[in-house]
Structures are given as C-alpha cells and as structure tokens.
Design a protein around this nucleic acid. Structure first.
Lengths: 103, 103
DNA sequence: GTCGTTACCAAGAAAGTCTTGGTATCATCC
DNA sequence: GGATGATACCAAGACTTTCTTGGTAACGAC
C-alpha cells in the first residue's frame, strides 16, 4: 500500500545520484525500516511512467556488483515534480493528521 | 487524491456520533482546512463498501435541518478497523517522511 | 546443485477514486 | 417568480495506481 507516494519516493531517492531500479527499491525499504515496501510490479511501471513524462532519464550501465543494470537519473522536470509532490504530501498528511490523530 | 485514507477518515469522523454522508464530507473538509476534499463519487461508494464489510450501520433519519438523510454509525468492527488503519497510517507516513523530508 | 540474491520485464487483476450525470428540497436574492 | 446555492442522495463508467503472478538471467555460497 503505497498510497500514491511512490513517484515522490523514487524522485527523492534519485536526488542522491543515479540509481538502478532494484537499488531504488532497496533504498526506500531500508531507509523506511521496511515500513514502505516496493513490489517490483509497482516499481518498474512507475519508472516507465515517469520516464515517459520526462521526470527521469534512463541508460544502460552497471550496478556496484558489475551487473547489467538500467540507471535512472532525475531531470530538471523531475526535480520540479518532486518539489510539487513533496509539498502536496506535506499538506495532505497534515490535513489527515488533524482528523485521524485528534484526541 | 485521498491516497486510501478515506475509510479511516470516515470511521474517525463517526466516533463523534452518527452522521449522514454529506455531513461526514463537510467535517473532513472543514477539519482539514480543505487540505482533504471528499468528492461525492468517492464518499458514497466508500460508505456502501464499509457498510457491506460490517464497519458501519445505516438507517434513514433526519439531518439537523430536518431533511431526509441516511445516518451512519460505527460498529464494533468499525472501531477495530479504525484502530488498525490508524496505526498502519502512522507507521507508513513515518516511513515516507524519513525519506521524503530528509535534509 | 540447489538456494538466495541481484537485476530486469510482462500481463492481467484488483481496488480506490474521479468524472459526469441525475433526483429532490429549501432558502435567499434579485 | 425565477435563478442560484446549499443540502442530501445515488449510479455508471473511466481512470490510475498497485498488486499478483509469472518469466529471464547471472552470480556466490553452501
């Protein structure tokens, strides 16, 4: 259950430099202490979608272990999208918290 | 964009006593300062779904203004569901925040 | 030589939400 | 007296995201 936050999480992960899909998922899971789990069936469609929209660019390269991997990096549009989604997320969760966590 | 939080928001709203659909939506919008907007096309399907699952019970009655309205109230199962969803939401948003709001 | 990890991809199903439309009553304002 | 806005409900279908399940392949460890 990613609740529409996956795009922002991927974009944010890539602010640390280019990464391949598998590494992005691992970063999100590790950093969130497994509170956020990214299934591959969610991850790759999200990457294609975001590349198609111009938020990411991909090229084939190698992983740290020397294996074939597709490396994604942020575009300028991706950075703008991240800023917008982060602010929207902040506002939305603040609104939900006012209701859900009251009392 | 409700990101799967609508069920929990409705359940929480009903802890304040029985309300009809329109009043639930207004409460959520007002309490969140319009950060969370509930479209009717999202609201009513959610209410049916939750009634079908035994989280809510409905009966016809009157609104504050004396108009015909269907009043929903929480069941015991609904309370349990609210507790579970609230905790899941808390954990999930904490995980997302660790990534998205870092730096 | 099987298992776990790394790495990618495809197809279809499921779920939730949104869009658009409809019904009806009542109060207010021009 | 007619339009508008608010209150209150409902239906149908489209859309998007996510999940499930399956597949390919290479590598190391046991």
């Amino acid at each position: 259950m990613l609740h529409g936050s996956l795009d922002a999480l991927i974009l944010k992960t890539l602010t640390g430099g280019p990464r391949h899909g598998y590494a992005i998922a691992k970063f999100i899971e590790d950093t969130s202490d497994d509170a956020v789990v990214v299934e591959e069936g969610s991850l790759y469609p999200a990457l294609y979608r975001m590349e198609r929209r111009g938020w990411l660019e991909a090229e084939w390269g190698e992983s740290d272990l020397g294996r074939r991997a597709k490396l994604y990096r942020l575009t300028r549009q991706g950075r703008a999208q991240l800023a917008a989604e982060t602010e929207a997320w902040r506002l939305f969760t603040a609104g939900v918290s006012k209701i859900l966590l009251a009392q």
